[in-house]
Design a protein around this nucleic acid. Structure first.
Length: 261
DNA sequence: ATGGTGGTGCCACCA
């Protein structure tokens, strides 16, 4: 079962970018972030035509997440638990009924800039709620994949120029510590597992500005976290870097994991 | 020093 994450940066503006990638990459399951649209204006048809079931948690203008799956989706949950007043559409999870059932959670973690400030406080509060919910997943002892745009640069080697990020919410000790605390419970950072000794990169995001892609001035912020039971099923992992060089690209590229499920 | 979106006709907000 090939499971991917893709921050699409506006799905209506980039529907052809998405369908082009889907046709070639043939993922079984995809979590999307920053669809930037409400459920009723989501472009269902071109995606359904490629054989996908679709579950959307949309929002006008900003944020918005979705799950696409060639297999049936069951027990869909929208919104991260822990704050009934949170209006932002950043979380969707569902069970994918493959040869084995896999719980898939797609997330768009708050950016948190500028820091310090209320947006950074929201980010850290959101990460605390994520940690609690992730602990619940581990207690279930089933295969879980929690993937998406985490908006956290885990280590200096996850940025081309880490010194440029010292004042940014994505690279604060509090943000990195919160991610590390989640991982310490027993989650596997699948991309890092695949390239444990890389001194720089791999990257998943390159800014549109100042020729960041051409200079390979990237960061690694799109992460795939596997519960122990999911890590045991991992066959392969990839980052579709080539998507960043195509027409009308997102600033993120797809990251995928293949599980024996 | 780019790009999507939305409320309006170029500008603010968010990344």
């Amino acid at each position: 079962m090939k499971i991917a994450t893709f921050n699409i940066n506006g799905i209506r503006a980039r529907i052809e970018t998405l369908t082009g990638w889907l046709s070639g990459a043939q993922p079984d399951v995809v979590v999307l972030q920053e669809i930037k649209t409400q459920d009723e204006s989501f472009p269902y048809e071109p995606i359904a035509d490629l054989g996908y079931n679709i579950e959307v948690h949309g929002q006008k203008s900003f944020n918005g997440v979705a799950i696409l799956s060639k297999l049936p989706l069951e027990d869909v949950r929208r919104g991260l638990p822990g704050d009934d007043g949170d209006e932002q559409a950043r979380w969707i999870e569902a069970t994918v009924a493959g040869r084995r059932a896999i719980r898939v959670a797609g997330l768009y973690l708050p950016n948190g800039n500028p820091q310090p400030g209320p947006k950074f406080d929201y980010k850290l509060g959101w990460m605390q709620r994520l940690h609690r919910h992730a602990q619940g997943f581990l207690a279930d002892e089933m295969p879980v994949v929690m993937l998406g745009d985490y908006n956290v640069i885990p280590e200096p080697r996850d940025a081309a120029h880490p010194e440029k990020w010292t004042d940014d919410a994505l690279f604060q000790p509090e943000s990195r510590g919160a991610l590390r605390r989640i991982l310490f419970d027993g989650w596997t950072d699948a991309v890092r597992l695949r390239e444990p000794d890389s001194p720089r990169g791999p990257f998943t995001f390159w800014d549109y500005q100042a020729g960041a892609w051409q200079k390979d001035n990237g960061i690694r912020i799109d992460h795939v976290l596997l519960s122990p039971q999911a890590a045991d099923l991992m066959i392969d992992l990839g980052i579709d870097r080539e998507e960043r060089a195509k027409d009308k690209p997102s600033d993120h590229v797809p990251v995928w994991v293949d599980l024996d499920a």
